[in-house]
């Protein structure tokens, strides 16, 4: 899915956090959005992934604006995955139940968990597994419906180097199978995996590297 942001601005109260962003995310690409804290990475990611409405401007998905996509929840569930910095698994559900909560086709859960190496942890709760395992479960939840694009906000921010690299490897391998990834991070290692790097500063796109 091709995602196009046109003149996107966003305010929190009177504070302008995005100041006219125009970018294109090509289908199946691995895009990294990098920048310091407060540069607007998370807000841009939230807007691109439909989790937040822009104050000004629009985002097009294969040429269609949000209001033309029908039910936004259905669209998000079928086409978009999201991975957060703090896994954000629901604590009273087991890892498998967390993934099942999002799944449109429950038969895909076990193969995906096996693929991600967490098949033995299905009945465990998020506070019973390691940080890396939690993040793998969160990634499984994002990937379960084979979305066109997965957005990840600082997905390795809470992980050690080994687990962080493991997450990037996972993203890269799924990217090769056609899933697009848009990853916001201040971790420079992401540059080794990304096809496109968008550099943000003070709410604007400072530079795009290909």
């Amino acid at each position: 899915m091709r995602i196009e942001a046109l003149g996107v601005e966003h305010f929190y109260g009177h504070e302008k956090v995005l100041n006219g962003v125009d970018i294109v995310i090509e289908p199946g690409s691995f895009t990294a959005i990098i920048g310091e804290s407060g540069s607007g990475k998370t807000t841009l990611l939230s807007i691109l992934s439909t989790l937040l409405q822009p104050s000004v401007g629009s985002v097009r998905y294969d040429g269609k604006i949000l209001s033309e996509l029908g039910n936004i929840d259905h669209f998000r569930r079928a086409h978009i995955g999201f991975v957060f910095q703090f896994h954000y698994l629901i604590s009273y559900l087991s890892l498998r139940e967390n993934i099942a909560l999002a799944a449109l086709d429950p038969t895909l859960i076990d193969p995906l968990m096996e693929n991600l190496g967490i098949e033995r942890l299905g009945k465990r709760y998020s506070d019973e597994v390691s940080g890396g395992e939690r993040q793998r479960a969160a990634i499984a939840r994002a990937l379960i419906n084979r979305p066109s694009v997965v957005f990840a906000d600082e997905p390795t921010g809470n992980l050690d180097t080994k687990n962080a690299l493991g997450v990037y490897e996972l993203f890269k391998s799924f990217s090769k199978e056609g899933t697009g990834f848009v990853v916001a991070s201040h971790d420079k290692k992401i540059a080794d995996y990304a096809d496109i790097i968008i550099e943000m500063e003070d709410g604007i796109v400072k530079k795009i590297h290909k």
Binding site: S49, D73, H74, R76, R77, Y88, L101, A142
Partner: peptide
């Protein structure tokens, strides 16, 4: 709120 936000983010409807 956080839990409901997560649910909305994974596509569960209002």
């Amino acid at each position: 709120k956080g839990e409901f936000g997560i649910m909305r983010s994974i596509g569960l409807s209002s």
